[in-house]
Amino acid sequence: MRSLGALPKPVLILEVIGIAFLLLSYLSLNGYVALPAPFGNATAAIIMVFLGIALMIPAAAFMVWAMAQNVAPLLTKGQSPVKKSLSDKPKDKHDDADH
Rank of each mutant, 00 (worst) to 15 (best):
K93H: 12
G78P: 08
V71S: 14
L55F: 14
I13F: 10
S28W: 12
V11S: 07
N41T: 14
A72L: 09
M63I: 10
M56H: 11
A34E: 06
D98N: 11
L29K: 15
S28H: 15
P38V: 07
K91H: 02
S85F: 01
L14H: 02
A61Q: 15
Y26R: 09
I13M: 09
L23R: 08
A97H: 03
L74W: 14
I19N: 05
M56N: 06
V82A: 12
G31M: 09
L51G: 13
T43D: 15
L12V: 04
G5K: 03
T76M: 08
N70D: 02
L4C: 15
K77H: 02
W65M: 06
A20K: 04
S87W: 05
F62G: 02
A61T: 13
L51P: 08
L23V: 12
I19K: 07
P73E: 01
A60M: 04
L22S: 04
N30H: 13
L23G: 10
L27A: 00
L12C: 09
N41F: 07
T76C: 13
K83D: 06
G5Y: 06
K91A: 04
Q69V: 08
K84G: 06
H99F: 00
L29G: 09
P10C: 04
D98W: 09
V33F: 13
V49K: 01
L35S: 03
D88K: 11
M63K: 15
V49G: 06
G5H: 05
F39G: 00
T76S: 12
H99G: 07
L12F: 10
S80Y: 05
M48A: 15
I46Q: 13
L12N: 04
L12S: 12
T43C: 00
P10S: 07
L74A: 14
I47D: 13
F62L: 00
I57Q: 09
A34K: 11
K9T: 14
L51Y: 13
P8N: 10
Y26A: 14
Q79S: 08
L23N: 07
L7G: 07
L55G: 11
T43A: 15
T43V: 15
Y32E: 10
D98S: 10
I57P: 01
L4I: 14
L55M: 13
M63W: 04
A20P: 01
N30K: 07
D98Q: 08
K84E: 03
W65I: 06
K89I: 05
I19P: 06
